[in-house]
């Protein structure tokens, strides 16, 4: 593919966190992802855009092996996190997912208290040696999730009682609590109203200072607002990948242009 050369050019600015080569995904008989090559950079927001069913969510789920939980899905190709193949037989997906956290389309707080929701990850990974440390982690994560001020007085209230936007920020805080290095977000704002969306977008921008963030989104405006790099998927193919500004102002592939101008998708 001709975009390979451009990817090479970006390397000098930021370190490559996650390197994907010749990735294929099959759902039973369906070939859902075809020959995708992408490099996710550290401390960068990368957006995946494309019409529904183009495979962007599927590809995202490959990055922390969430597809393992689906029986019929098969993944091929090389995915290297800091140079290590995440599909290596010796890799425990559990460890991987602690490093590569995920936030889902629909806010899915556990039916527990706000505190327990955030403390869940640190507890299972054993990140805190005592209650005080755990409290600290919870507070820090909720602050990073930009929700601390709203919930600090009711940490014992159930997480399911929050509003949609608060729930999603809680889920982000929950994901942040395990100290991931990469944060995957699968259409995190699609179930939120515009105000909550703005809050989450602001949060994503702050998260960039610590993590490498990958976001799948339907909204091109959102991709333009929050991301530095953009990948356009179409029918399971990666059509174009590059600087967000360039993709939106000067796309190389006619399909990208059609999508951005609203003719397909």
């Amino acid at each position: 593919m001709n975009d390979m050369s451009r990817v090479e050019r970006q390397v000098d600015t930021n370190k490559i966190k996650l390197e994907c080569r010749d990735c294929q995904v099959y759902y039973g008989e369906t070939h859902a992802i075809k020959d995708v090559n992408v490099d996710i950079e550290d401390k960068t927001v990368t957006a995946f855009i494309g019409p529904s069913g183009c495979g962007k969510s599927t590809f995202l789920r490959c990055l922390n092996r969430m597809n393992d939980t689906i029986d019929v899905a098969r993944v091929k190709g090389s995915f290297k996190l800091d140079g290590e193949d995440i599909y290596d037989k010796r890799v425990d997906p559990v460890q991987l997912r602690a490093k590569v956290g995920m936030v889902f389309q629909k806010p899915n707080p556990f039916p527990k208290s706000i505190y327990d929701n955030v403390a869940y990850g640190p507890r299972i990974h054993g990140l805190a040696r005592n209650k005080a440390e755990l409290d600290e982690i919870v507070e820090k994560s909720l602050r990073r999730g930009a929700i601390w001020n709203e919930v600090k007085d009711r940490l014992d209230a159930p997480g399911t009682g929050l509003s949609g936007g608060q729930q999603q920020r809680l889920c982000i805080a929950r994901a942040v609590a395990t100290e991931p290095e990469v944060l995957l977000m699968d259409e995190p704002c699609s179930a939120l109203d515009p105000i909550a969306t703005a809050q989450v977008e602001e949060l994503i921008d702050e998260l960039r200072s610590r993590y490498s963030v990958v976001i799948v989104t339907h909204s091109m405006q959102q991709a333009a607002r929050v991301s530095q790099k953009t990948a356009f998927f179409h029918l399971g193919n990666l059509v174009e990948f590059g600087e967000t500004g360039q993709i939106f102002t000067n796309p190389e592939d006619p399909r990208t242009e059609s999508y951005i101008t609203g003719r397909i998708g």
């Binding site: 370190k15 996190l81 290590e84 460890q95 299972i124 054993g126 990140l127 100290e179 290095e181 610590r210």
Partner: peptide, 29 residues
């Protein structure tokens, strides 16, 4: 490269250096 991330994160990264070498806790889990 882990060093680099360590410097930027004030807290020590809690995760094992390599994905393929499970630590004590993961083994127990």
């Amino acid at each position: 490269m882990t060093d680099a991330s360590m410097q930027e994160n004030p807290e020590a990264t809690p995760h094992p250096v390599s994905l393929t070498a499970p630590n004590e806790r993961t083994r127990k889990r």
